[in-house]
Design a protein around this nucleic acid. Structure first.
Length: 196
DNA sequence: TACGTCAAACCGGACA
DNA sequence: TGTCCGGTTTGACGTA
């Protein structure tokens, strides 16, 4: 019985895998040839309290940082090893990448969110395929039921000595192997119900 | 130039 | 109190 889609062998489902990894973010950052060469904003301001910089006074417009390829790569490497960072790791990574710890923190939060989104999309795709397969199977079984009903109605096809019985619940017709199995429905019913 | 996409950054609530 | 998460905003960038 093929419940799964035909190409399910190719379907790399990783629902049980927490978080990530079935789709390595190889195109992250450099994705699609989008160049990230405007690096001026990426430098860590030497002022120690640059976090307050943006909040001081009349709230200047947000400056958007674009990470360099190297920064992205190192962050990805780090993310592959660990999806969360403790404060020491965060501090070390920030120092190494010349970024603020807060930026590291935000990057990891966003990265986890993207990872989860990708995972959810994969699960959605898988469930869609499964639904399609089940629908197809359902149609097939309905056709089978119709055929068997037609057989039952047509007296020429079903002899009087036939031992076909139909489960009243699921409408599935079964054949009895021996005359002893062709027992009255009242007797056979509890057994069949137990099977379901 | 308008529009869509991506990702950095922010916000508020939940939790240990 | 710090961290995480879901949701949102916003700026950079590519493209029609």
């Amino acid at each position: 019985m093929a419940i799964l889609p035909e190409n399910s062998s190719n379907l790399d489902l990783t629902i049980s895998v927490p978080g990530f990894s079935s789709s390595p973010p190889s195109d992250e950052g450099s994705g699609g040839g989008r160049e990230q060469l405007k690096l001026d904003m990426n430098r860590l301001p030497s002022s120690e309290d640059d976090e307050e910089l943006s909040h001081g006074g009349s709230a200047p417009p947000r400056k958007k940082l674009r990470l360099t390829r190297e920064q992205s790569r190192l962050l990805e490497d780090s993310f592959r090893q660990n999806h969360t960072l403790n404060p020491k790791q965060k501090e070390a990574l920030a120092k190494h990448l010349m970024l603020r710890p807060r930026q590291i923190e935000v990057w990891f939060q966003n990265r986890r969110a993207r990872s989860k989104l990708k995972q959810t999309e994969m699960e959605c795709e898988y469930l869609k395929r499964w639904f399609g397969s089940l629908t197809e199977q359902n149609h097939r079984l309905h056709r089978e039921v119709e055929e068997l009903r037609a057989m039952k109605v047509a007296p020429s096809t079903v002899t009087s000595t036939s031992s076909l019985t139909m489960c009243p619940r699921c409408e599935r017709v079964t054949t009895a192997a021996s005359p002893s199995m062709a027992a009255p429905a009242k007797k056979a019913l509890p057994l069949k119900e137990r099977e379901h």
